[in-house]
């Protein structure tokens, strides 16, 4: 059965979280809510990448006594998406902090967090 495997369930969860995050970004009007939706989107993409790298019945790419050193290529999952996601998470927190700083500056300017109040760039 295709559905009841770990990686397929993670893929479904990641896809639904991605759609929910996108929906939040385009439908919410509060800036902080939009940033929260962005962080949900971020988490979902990380989850999708790790789930794509998973291979069933294999173990983590760390070679110690429970992994045969000579047969490592047949016992470990893909280490490449994990290294990618590791970098992406740290950059994600930087982006979130930067977005929050801009939100704070906008709030100082207009003392409102509603996106409808900012008309200066509308044309």
């Amino acid at each position: 059965m295709k559905l009841f495997e770990i990686e397929y369930i993670s893929l479904i969860a990641g896809f639904i979280l991605l759609i929910v995050g996108l929906w939040g970004i385009i439908s919410q009007r509060n800036i902080i809510k939009m940033i929260i939706s962005f962080s949900i989107l971020d988490t979902s993409v990380h989850l999708l990448l790790v789930a794509v790298g998973y291979i069933r019945n294999r173990t983590a790419p760390i070679i110690d006594s429970s992994v045969n050193k000579l047969n490592a290529a047949n016992e470990i999952t893909d280490p490449l998406p994990q290294a990618l996601v590791l970098t992406a998470i740290v950059i994600g927190v930087g982006i979130t902090a930067l977005l929050l700083t801009y939100a704070l500056k906008l709030f100082r300017q207009n003392s409102s967090l509603e996106i409808n109040q900012y008309k200066s760039l509308k044309w």
Partner: peptide, 25 residues
């Protein structure tokens, strides 16, 4: 879920950054 998917490095990163530092900021 990252632990289930055999990615302990990513799990540590997400635990320390996602649920402590982001929430604090």
């Amino acid at each position: 879920i990252y632990i289930f998917l055999a990615a302990p490095d990513v799990a540590i990163t997400e635990a320390s950054i996602g649920s402590v530092i982001t929430v604090s900021i």
